[in-house]
Amino acid sequence: MIECKDVSKAYQIGDMVTEAVRNICFKVEVGEFLAILGHSGSGKSTLLSIIGGLTRPSGGQVAVDGEDIWQWSDNERARFRNCTIGFVFQFASLIPTLTVLDNIALPSLFGEGMTRAARLRARDLAGIVGLSDKVDSYPSEISGGQQRRVAISRAFLNDPKIVLADEPTGDLDEATEAQVMDLFTGMCRQHKTTILMVTHNRDLIKSADRTLVMKDGGIL
């Protein structure tokens, strides 16, 4: 379903060229939970952003269902991110001026529109992550862990085929971390959601079907 062929990304700062990602090749099947393990600076987040259509690679292809997403127009990639991908970033990444419910329902604004159905779905997702009583709160009124759970709920709003999670449990306590991992594995098993999770935490890769290890931009 997802195929990376010789994907590379180089940044040029002045005369210096830094290769963040080097000739990466791998495939991920539908419903697979893939963990990408690596230290900070190994290029795993950059790789995830390339697969998610956020960062253009310097070379190579990222094919989803056989189509190279980097051959699409910017609008097509935006639609792809809205309908097919769910992102979970390293930080909570919520809009501070929106309530928890609106933050979870936000992706619908760029798709079908923020309909009643979207808000109902957002309310359900808030319930799944244990935030039913916080839906009317603003991000500044809830804890960091709760914010992270809101961001995870948001990633699942549009029933994405693929979830790209970048250190999704970064600053969560153990119990919440376990809940999040259960949610990921549950979605993966029940809904055949493909999950690519980037982490430096070896404990988390136990939940994954397969693990790739990255170092200095390449896969070991």
Binding site: L54, A78, R81, F89, S93, I95, G111
Partner: peptide
């Protein structure tokens, strides 16, 4: 960061 996030969840330019 907010604008980048909006782009990530489907906002076009």
């Amino acid at each position: 960061r907010e604008l980048g996030l909006l782009r990530a969840i489907g906002a076009t330019r």
